[in-house]
Every structure is written in structure tokens, then in C-alpha cells.
Amino acid sequence: MTMYAALLRGINVSGHKKVPMAELRTLLTELGHGDVRTHLQSGNAVFSSPSDDENALAVELERAIEKRFGFPVPCLVRDGAYLAAVAAACPFPAAELEGRQLHVTYFGQPVDAERFARIDPAAYLPEAFRLGDRALYLYAPDGLGRSKLADALSRPTLTKGIMATSRNWNTVVKLVEMTAHDGART
């Protein structure tokens, strides 16, 4: 069994697209997954599955959510090894920063640097970003809510055609911990 994290995009924000975590856990269990747990109310679920197809797991979950709740919710599913590798590859000094200062945007597919070439990094200092494996790391010293770089990075022209969802560093670390041992509860 492999441990996975499901990252749901845009749920439980300002009372829209409500997906109670208890119902999400029930739904994942009904889909045949084990070791189901959730983290926070913002769409983070961990589960075990014998499948090795992250995309198929995501599509299955998206369909089940739409059927159960009546609205579409984009989902990414990533295994624990990938989540750990993304955390380990962080180009910023994560141990020295507050969780609100560092974010990871997970992409549904690889992205190339050319997509972000029009962003002048010097114009946003001290904020900074770096690309990783289907991920973008964002350092925003004043937090995401005040980040001009985060606004620039989320422009539709840059994100068109790509499923993307962001998590702060505290959540990144927690998901790594929750998926650390295949088939084992933490």
C-alpha cells in the first residue's frame, strides 16, 4: 500500500464549495481507501491505496466529490515520496522561516521556466520564487495575503491550462509527516 495526499483546490473558502472533512473521510473510505485522515478544513486528505496511478486516483476522487456534493473540485493526488522530495528540495531556508512565509504550489503537470519568464524577480524583492518538480516555491516574508509576487504568479496567463493548488510550509511539512510510512498511521 502506498500513502497518498489528496490536495483539493478551492473548498471551504468564504462559505463556498463546502466539503466537511468528516464527509470527505467517509467518501475516501467508500472508494476503498484505507488509513484515511484529513488535515485542516482546506482540503488535505491522506489515504492508502494499492494503486500506483496518481492521476486515476485524482479523477476518481473528483468524480465522487462532484456526485456527492454537486459541484466540481479539482484534485491533485501525490504520494508520500514525492511530497518528501519536494520538501527536501526547498531552495529557501525553511527551518529559519515561519510557515506563513513559505509556500509550495503543486502543479498537475510539469511546468517550464519559460512560462514565468516575464516576471522580473528584482521587481518583487525580497519576495522570491523558484521552480521545482511540478512545484513552485514562494518566499513571501510578509505572508501570502500581502504578497505582490503571489498575485503576479497567479495571473491567468501564467496558470492557464494547469491545475495548481498552494499550501503553506506548515501544511507541506504536516503532509510529509502524515504520508511518511506507507500503510502506517502517524
Rank of each mutant, 00 (worst) to 15 (best):
G145N: 12
L131V: 08
D120S: 14
L102H: 09
F129H: 08
R130T: 07
R134N: 13
Y137R: 02
R130S: 15
K148P: 00
A152Y: 01
A128V: 02
L131I: 09
A113H: 05
A135L: 06
G145Q: 12
G108E: 02
L102S: 13
V111K: 07
R146H: 15
F129R: 02
S147Y: 14
R118E: 14
D112F: 00
G143V: 05
A117V: 07
G99H: 12
A150K: 02
R134V: 07
P126K: 13
P110I: 01
R130K: 11
A123T: 10
Q109T: 09
L149I: 12
Y137W: 06
R118A: 15
A135G: 06
G108C: 01
D142F: 05
F116E: 04
E98C: 01
P121F: 06
A128Q: 12
A150I: 06
G132A: 10
F129S: 02
R100S: 05
F116G: 10
F129K: 05
I119F: 06
D112Y: 00
T105G: 09
G99V: 11
A140M: 02
L138F: 09
A128E: 11
Y106C: 06
Q109I: 00
A135K: 04
A122P: 01
L138R: 01
A135Y: 10
R134I: 02
E98D: 14
V104D: 11
F129M: 09
Y106G: 11
P110K: 03
L131M: 03
P141L: 12
S147P: 08
G132E: 08
G99K: 12
T105V: 15
R118I: 02
P110N: 05
L149Y: 12
E127D: 10
L131K: 01
G108D: 06
E98M: 10
D133H: 07
K148C: 10
D112M: 00
A140V: 07
F116R: 05
A150T: 04
G99Y: 13
R100G: 00
E127H: 04
Y137G: 01
R100Q: 03
L136I: 02
V104F: 08
R115F: 03
A113L: 05
R118H: 12
F116W: 10
Y124H: 14
G143L: 05
A128P: 01
E98R: 13
L136A: 04
R100T: 06
L102A: 13
H103P: 00
R100P: 00
E114G: 15
D120H: 11
P110D: 13
D133A: 14
G99C: 11
P121A: 05
E114V: 13
A123S: 09
K148M: 12
L149N: 08
P126S: 14
V111E: 08
A140Q: 04
A123K: 04
D133V: 03
L125C: 03
I119Q: 07
V111N: 04
F107N: 08
L102N: 12
D112S: 03
A122D: 15
G108S: 04
T105D: 05
D133K: 08
H103L: 08
V104A: 08
D120W: 10
L136E: 03
G143E: 07
P121M: 05
